Amino acid sequence: MSPPAPPTELMPSERIVVLLSCVLSALGSGLLVATHALWPDLRSRARRLLLFLSLADLLSATSYFYGVLRDFEGPSWDCVLQGALSTFANTSSFFWTVAIALYLYLSIVRTVRGQGASRLFWAFHIVSWGPLAITMAAVALKKIGYDASDVSVGWCWINLEAEDYVLWMLLTGKLWEMLAYIMLPLLYLLVRKHISRAHEALSEYRPTISETHQLRGRSSVADKKLVLIPLIFICLRVWSTVRFVLTLCGSPAVQVPVLVVLHGVGNTFQGGANCIMFALCTQAVRTRLLQVCCCCSSQSPTTETQEGPPAASAPIKAGKSQGPSWAPDQQLST
């Protein structure tokens, strides 16, 4: 194996871009947590999983922000602390992302309900928060430390001076990341195929053409989102994998500025991407956010009173338009 490349020096412009990505990701994760707290009727099981994913992404963005702002130049106590927090949060985010895909597959395709879903949630918690044990072991064995920004962008991760640093890079992130590359597209492909078959079967019994078109319109939105979820995940995370491979090969290409920026944005913007997908591009959530903005911008109490009844009736109308049997999770998928 070739020796590691020299330390990667971060330019001010690169740091600004990655720091902005961290801020946007933290804001997006916070918005998802706020929507879960504000509107109890949107708390489906799938959105409960999204809540825990958002918490992991929020911790990840915060720890990455400190690391990029600090731009460590050597080992230190806060380097180990930041590396441990980002390692745990980032790996936990992988597991929660796969948990959402697995839950949608089991609830839509396998129709898991009731006690089975409750037991499944306990399993998700055990597995998805499990990286805490791996992180604690890495800290205890002094594996987390300064990595010269070759497998990071200013923050700390696995100490490149450790003899078995490749093994610990795999255990603390890369192995689970590469498994997610495989599992996410596979699960969402199976869900999408099941939905399309279900709607084809339902369309044969639809008495009117207009109802069929409405059903297909809703399913097309879900299908697009099912495609985008694994695609966005891979597009964001693949750059860190590329730099990981280049570091193992000792290639100087690991320091290419464009690749460094893509790695920094990809690792830190997961919370922002989830916010765009599950809040800004979800009609039920987007409508309520617009209503809140309108209420905040209104000046007189009379205007707020007049706008009150439509805001209360909007969720009821949205709820009546639910179509197929997987409607309880449609608030996450559409």
Rank of each mutant, 00 (worst) to 15 (best):
L186W: 14
L187V: 13
L189M: 12
L189V: 10
V191K: 14
V191L: 15
I195F: 05
I195D: 02
S196F: 12
A198V: 07
H199C: 12
H199T: 13
E200W: 07
E200K: 09
E200D: 07
A201H: 11
S203M: 12
E204D: 11
E204I: 09
Y205M: 14
Y205T: 12
R206G: 10
T208Y: 05
T208Q: 04
I209F: 08
L215H: 02
R216F: 03
G217T: 04
G217H: 03
R218M: 06
R218H: 10
S219H: 12
S220F: 07
D223V: 08
D223A: 11
D223P: 04
K224S: 07
K224M: 09
L226G: 11
I229C: 06
I229D: 06
I232Y: 15
I234Q: 02
C235R: 14
L236N: 02
L236Y: 01
L236P: 04
R237V: 00
R237W: 00
V238F: 06
W239Y: 09
W239N: 04
S240R: 11
S240N: 10
T241L: 06
T241Q: 02
R243Y: 01
L246T: 01
L246W: 00
T247H: 05
L248Q: 09
C249D: 07
G250H: 05
S251F: 02
P252R: 00
V256W: 12
P257W: 09
L259K: 04
L259F: 01
L259P: 00
L259D: 02
V260T: 02
V261H: 06
H263Y: 10
G264F: 03
G266V: 02
N267H: 07
N267M: 13
T268G: 13
F269R: 05
F269Y: 12
F269G: 04
G271C: 08
G272A: 08
A273L: 12
N274D: 15
N274I: 14
C275S: 13
C275Y: 13
M277G: 03
C281F: 12
C281K: 11
T282E: 13
T282P: 03
Q283P: 04
Q283G: 07
Q283V: 07
R288K: 06
L289T: 08
L290C: 13
L290P: 03
L290D: 08
L290M: 06
C293A: 15
C295Q: 11
S297Y: 12
Q299V: 14
Q299W: 08
S300V: 01
P301Q: 09
P301Y: 07
T302I: 11
T302C: 10
T303A: 12
T303I: 05
T303F: 03
Q306W: 14
Q306V: 15
Q306H: 13
E307F: 15
G308D: 01
P310E: 05
A311L: 04
A311K: 02
A312V: 09
A312W: 13
S313F: 14
S313P: 07
S313I: 15
A314V: 04
P315G: 05
I316W: 15
A318V: 09
S321C: 01
S321Q: 03
